[in-house]
Amino acid sequence: MVSTVVFWLAAAVAIVGAGGVLLAKHPVHSALSLVLNLAALGVLFLLLHAEFLAVVEILVYAGAVMVLFLFVVTLLMAGTKTPRDEGRFRLAYQYLLAGLFGLILFVLVAHALVGADWMSSLAATNAGGSFGSIAAFGTALFTKYLLPFELTAVVLLVAVIGVIFLGREHGATRK
């Protein structure tokens, strides 16, 4: 009952977010709409009891990947005004190409959905009750993938010290 309501709400928000990505005039607004879309997808994953996927969707996509997007946007737009002021930021045949690719994607997805054998593929993907749960993930992290886990700690340490060095006022501390 409740989950049905939540599903429809989250689905609507996801579609609004996706629309916002396409229609926003400013790249930063597009990026922020994508955050909305990803957050709604996270809720959908939660409804499917894929807790870990939900967390990753929010942390990695809405968090880290978005920061990367915004970094690239600010890097490319450094010194320019908003695209609308700049005038022609638009590519030639933009709508035509977007429509074409959209159509191709739609046909592919529709073909896959119509032709799918739902029951057998469900059985194939059912990898056991705890698969994808946070507990299973944690166990794998501390047993099978212990070395990558430790190395990630070093990566974070490097990032912290590197950022502190680059962000520090120089001249004040260095003579």
Binding site: P148, L151, T152, V154, V155, V158, A159, G162
Partner: peptide, 8 residues
Amino acid sequence: LGLEVLSL
């Protein structure tokens, strides 16, 4: 991860 610890 070794490559990243090298590069950063």
